[in-house]
């Protein structure tokens, strides 16, 4: 049974109904363990003091903010190429979650930077590019709401997502060019020595897993809702036509 089987909305709902409770349970476990472990059982950082605890929400939310947009990009491509309604609706469902993740990344970034930078907002390149990403999310969601015909809306928003992604990357480097940057080095990078020490590492993994699962669970739930809303409109249209 190929992956495209799940493009059938009815089958999508049936399978996600089976999976959703487990995903929610896993999300709860990962989030609770990650946050509790990170918040209560890790020492303070010698330089940043207790603010390092913000890492457990800033890094996962920032990660999810970007990955949510990537997921929407892939879903838009699938819609354009294979015309599967579920992927277009999944993209629509993911946008608000991605926007919230971006908001969290922005807020926690500002809170974390405040003691270091002395101001609430220091136009740091990475935080600013999250601000721009947030604007893209707003535009994307607004376009979905503005168009009545479902198929046209799906087409237009997918193209906006494609074009927006290119400009988001462009803005990412333009912002870097525009301000020399105060953000600390990459928290998670492949070369070991630049990485944070293990004691912070494991709880962070749980938090990231928790945020990812939360995203997946929310997108499944919201996609189901979009499918049901779409089905309602379809039934009403058929009723209206009869």
């Amino acid at each position: 049974m190929s992956l495209w089987e799940y493009a059938n909305p009815v089958k999508f709902i049936r399978t996600t109904d089976k999976v959703l409770p487990w995903v929610w349970a896993l999300t709860g476990i990962c989030l609770v363990t990650g946050l509790v472990w990170g918040f209560f059982f890790t020492p303070d950082d010698f330089r940043q003091g207790s603010t390092v605890k913000i890492i457990y929400i800033h890094v996962p939310s920032a990660l999810m903010a970007i990955n949510a947009w990537l997921m929407m990009l892939v879903a838009s491509l699938i819609w354009i190429v294979r015309r599967h309604h579920v992927s277009a609706l999944a993209a629509r469902a993911a946008a608000p979650v991605g926007a919230v993740m971006t908001l969290i990344a922005l807020a926690t970034g500002a809170f974390w930077g405040q003691p270091m930078w002395g101001t609430w907002w220091a136009w740091d390149p990475r935080l600013t590019s999250f601000l721009i990403l947030f604007l893209f999310y707003l535009g994307y969601m607004a376009l979905w709401e503005a168009i009545e015909n479902d198929d046209t809306a799906a087409d237009l928003t997918s193209i906006l997502c494609l074009v927006g992604s290119v400009f988001a990357i462009l803005s990412r480097y333009a912002v870097n060019f525009w301000n020399q940057g105060l953000h600390q080095g990459a928290t998670l990078s492949l070369d070991k020595e630049e990485n944070i020490s293990d004691v912070f590492w494991f709880p962070l993994l749980f938090c990231i897993a928790g945020f990812v699962l939360l995203f997946v669970a929310l997108v499944f739930l919201r996609t189901q809702t979009e499918i049901r809303a779409r089905r309602t409109r379809a039934l009403l249209a058929r009723e209206g036509q009869a």
């Binding site: 309604h85 198929d151 499918i227 779409r230 089905r231 409109r233 379809a234 039934l235 249209a237 058929r238």
Partner: peptide, 12 residues
């Protein structure tokens, strides 16, 4: 004849 919209077939 009144029938479902093509774009809605997947949902009915």
């Amino acid at each position: 004849a009144p029938r479902t919209r093509q774009m809605d077939e997947a949902f009915l």
